[in-house]
C-alpha cells in the first residue's frame, strides 16, 4: 500500500519534470514548439468535446481515436487469424519450418512505410491497404511466439497423446492449444503494440481520419499544438492497450 502511494507520487514527479523540460525547450530553445499551456488551450475544444464532428478531418479526439482503434482492431484480428495457424504449422512441422523460416526472417524487419504503397497498388483503396499493412507488420511476434510455444511442449505430453490414442483434433484442443496459450498471448501482446505503431504511419500516408491522419493534417495546417495532442493520445492509448493485454496474459498464466 505504502509502496503504491510512493510509486504514484514518483511517477507524478516524473511527469512534472518532463513538462518542465518541455516548457523550458519551448521558451528558450525552439520557439515553434508550443508550450504545455498553449497546447492545452488550443487542444481544449478537442479534448472537452471528444465526440464532436465538425468536418471530415475536424473531429473530437475521442472520435479520432475510435477510428484508429477500430482500424487497428481489424488489422490486428487479421494478423492473429493468419499468424496463429502459421505459428502452429511452423512449430509442429520441421519441414515447413525449414522451408519458410528464411522467408519469414526476411519479411519480418520490413517497415510499414515499405508495405503501404504495395497495399495501395494491390487494393487501390486506402482502407484495405492500411489493414494489409497492419496485419503484415504486426503478425510476426504472434507467428514466432506461437511457434516457440508449440516447440516447448514437453515430450511427455506428446507421449500422453500417443498413450491415450487421442485423435489429432483432440490432441490439438486438449494438449497443443492449452500448452501453447501463454506463449500465444505474449505474441498477441507484442503484435498489438506493433499494430498501434503501424496505424499512425498508415493513416499519415493515406490521409484517412484517425489520430495519425489528424496529426499529419495539422502539421500541414501549421497547428503544431495539435501534433502534440496526437502524440500524447497515441502514447496514452498504446499504454492502456499494453496494460489490458498484460492483464489478460497474467490472468491466463494464473489459470
Amino acid at each position: 500500500m505504502k509502496k503504491t502511494i510512493a510509486n504514484t507520487l514518483l511517477s507524478f514527479v516524473g511527469i512534472v519534470l518532463v513538462l518542465g523540460l518541455w516548457s523550458f525547450i519551448s521558451a528558450n530553445v525552439a520557439p515553434d514548439l508550443p508550450s504545455p499551456v498553449r497546447t492545452w488551450e488550443e487542444s481544449r475544444l478537442y479534448i472537452m468535446q471528444p465526440w464532436e464532428k465538425r468536418g471530415e478531418m475536424d473531429q473530437g479526439i475521442g472520435l479520432m481515436t475510435a477510428y484508429s482503434l477500430f482500424r487497428v482492431a481489424k488489422g490486428f484480428a487479421l494478423a492473429l487469424l493468419i499468424g496463429t495457424p502459421l505459428g502452429f504449422l511452423l512449430g509442429s512441422s520441421p519441414l515447413f519450418f525449414r522451408m519458410f523460416d528464411p522467408t519469414i526472417q526476411i519479411l519480418r524487419p520490413i517497415s510499414p512505410l515499405a508495405w503501404l504503397p504495395l497495399g495501395l497498388i494491390l487494393f487501390r483503396q486506402s482502407e484495405p491497404a492500411a489493414l494489409f499493412t497492419i496485419a503484415l507488420c504486426s503478425m510476426w511476434p504472434t507467428v514466432v511466439n506461437t511457434m516457440q510455444g508449440v516447440r516447448a511442449i514437453p515430450q511427455d505430453y506428446h507421449n500422453v497423446a500417443k498413450v491415450l490414442r487421442l485423435s489429432p483434433w483432440r490432441k490439438f484442443t486438449k494438449i497443443m492449444l492449452p500448452a501453447t496459450l501463454p506463449y500465444m498471448f505474449s505474441g498477441y501482446r507484442l503484435s498489438l503494440g506493433i499494430a498501434w505503431l503501424v496505424i499512425v504511419a498508415a493513416e499519415m500516408l493515406t490521409g484517412t481520419p484517425g489520430v495519425g491522419g489528424f496529426l499529419w493534417q495539422e502539421y500541414n495546417s501549421l497547428i503544431y499544438s495539435h501534433i502534440l495532442l496526437c502524440i500524447l493520445t497515441i502514447g496514452i492509448v498504446g499504454f492502456i492497450l499494453d496494460r489490458l493485454m498484460g492483464f489478460a496474459e497474467a490472468r491466463l498464466r494464473a489459470a
Partner: peptide, 26 residues
C-alpha cells in the same frame, strides 16, 4: 495398452476427472 509415467504426466489444465475421461473417450 495403458502406461503410468514416473512424473505422472497429467495435463495441468484439466481436472482429475477430465484427465481420466480423456483416456476413456478414445
Amino acid at each position: 495398452a495403458g502406461m503410468v509415467f514416473q512424473n505422472y504426466s497429467l495435463l495441468p489444465w484439466l481436472s482429475a476427472l477430465e484427465n481420466v475421461r480423456l483416456a476413456v473417450e478414445p
